[in-house]
Amino acid sequence: MTPPPPGSEVHAADVTAGDASTSIERTSILVYEGPVRAWHWITALAITTLAVTGYLIANPLPSVTGEASDWYVMGNIRFIHFAAGYVLAIGWLVRIYWAFVGNHHSRQLFKFPFWKKEYWDGVAWEASWYFFYRRWPKKYVGHNPLAQFVMFFVFTLGMFFMIITGFALYAEGTGLDSWQYALFGWVFDIFPNSQAVHTWHHLGMWVFVCYIIIHIYAAVREDIMSRQSMISTMISGERMFKDNRDD
């Protein structure tokens, strides 16, 4: 029996021979389980909120007029920031928990295969694709090696940095006797003073802003140009491959 010609599985009323000849076989794998997807979008929202409110805490809006007792502008901005901070931090804890109980893709954020040569070859391959030296990237079920690099060093470590410094700063308000200070007070042993922690926490916000720009761009670009789906994957969880060629 001869294999069916390409595109013959495309069951559409208006399918033509031309369509059939350009059809590709697609396959899919479940990569992101439900909790991971939910975490992703909650975190995205939290980070956006934190960045906007954080910026406004450092650069407050123009002054309001009237009695101080009539207003709570700065107080509300700070409240939203702290609330979003809690959401982010609790989400991160859940995400860490999921790394233990979820599928192996859920652990990728927290691992960095520093000593594996194949990994670094993959980074070089992806980088050369991004520098237009190659027509095709490789296909990956999880993060590609370059993405993994950014995810680990910028996102994962960045999350730890921001959550820890954020709670240390929050502990200044809750006081020396609070659990926040008990857990995070050590931060002030590392930095010379609270102002320096603020400065670095604020710089961290900008790191995340840059990360988000690149993250969204890479996701859109990969969606269009790579051999697998990206954005829809974070909605459906399914990684779709656009071709079925081997690498």
Partner: peptide
């Protein structure tokens, strides 16, 4: 931090 971060973000945006 804002000047540095803003500049880097602008550069990142431009590069993108």
């Amino acid at each position: 931090a804002d000047a540095i971060g803003g500049t880097v973000a602008a550069v990142a945006g431009g590069a993108v």
